[in-house]
Amino acid sequence: MTSGLDPVIHAPARLRVVATLNALREGDTVTFPGLRDLLGMTAGNLSVHLGKLEDAGYVEITKTHRGRTPVTYVALTRRGRLAFEDYTAEIRSLLDAASPPADG
């Protein structure tokens, strides 16, 4: 029944990452530590999931420098936003199909 769901997003940790990034306004990015704090994940764990999302073309990771300190910014790509919207719509339709329509 759930086989049609996007396997890249259909994992709790990555779903949380994508839902968080989707809350950014289009064009905005968030720092890696900022994202890590919001998700309460370890840096290593977050890196692994971001790597998978990046491979799928869902997130864009920009590495740059502020003075001498390296900073990493993360954002959802257009494709990532669409994938999250599709996923949310599918989850909702699964729930609608599973529960009988409320009559009132």
Partner: peptide, 15 residues
């Protein structure tokens, strides 16, 4: 554990 999907209800609540 991160990879194991939950039920649709739980995934929606997570979102």
């Amino acid at each position: 554990d991160d990879e194991r999907a939950l039920s649709p209800q739980e995934m929606l609540r997570l979102i």
